[in-house]
Amino acid sequence: MMEQSSIDLWKPVKVVKLKIYRYNPKKDFSPKWKEYEIEVSRGTTILDALIRIKEEVDPSLSFRYSCGQALCGSCAMMVNGRQMLVCRTRVLEAAHNRDFVELRPLDNFPVIRDLAGDFTSFFEKHRAIKPWIIRRDFEELDNPTGEYKQTIEEYARYYQFTDCLKCGACYSACPTVATDHEYLGPQALAQAYRYMVDSRDDGLDERIAILDSDHGCWRCHFAASCSDVCPKYVDPAQGIQLLKKLIVRRKFGLKPHRPSDALPSKIGEVKRR
């Protein structure tokens, strides 16, 4: 048996048809589908294929990308009807033994052109939940005397949610967003939870006023599609349910729950401030 080398990864193995959504809202009356045939190897990602089409076949094709390694969250698209980061999805993986891949812009985002969506309202919703640490000790902030320390348990409460790229996959997959355009969406709600359980943060009640509203967290009914499509395994559905639990406990005057108290390791004692 021949040993597989890394060069084999780039040897063309198949011709795949990319069916791409073409639409310029300023010019076109309605969207069109255009097909491009492209030779792919085992390692070709959809982003590689799109860049090659733009360079060699059709320079008018528009899409957004930046890092190409699933770190920036610019290139989320609908690949065969499912939200994915195209920079880390291989063409053959998406084609699934067939010979075509369908690419559309993300659902529920206004189209700027072709595959690029407009994220303005998405980012506005993220900003609305105050995604920063809110402190009340103004004296300490003006004249700092040391760091704000945390135990590993306190860190574990929110670490998972810090991986969010703001790629918009969860927002696009959410069935509630499809009909309620004012709804904050899974990304903003999960980020709200991330800041509310942070032991350094004092803005719990300030954020509850924003989240406990008509278009806030109570619109979520656990379709769990956000967690299903999240490319960084942030699990926004879990964040939103824990957020609701936190708000309910707060309303009944109970102590906020601490979801990660049962972690095995404790790194030293931390001086409370």
Partner: peptide
């Protein structure tokens, strides 16, 4: 087409997603 909103059909896009 420009707003690209799913509307009510978004509730019923179930193919490929989980049972929830």
């Amino acid at each position: 087409y420009a707003l690209n909103r799913r509307g009510v059909s978004g509730w019923f896009r179930m193919r490929g997603y989980t049972i929830e």
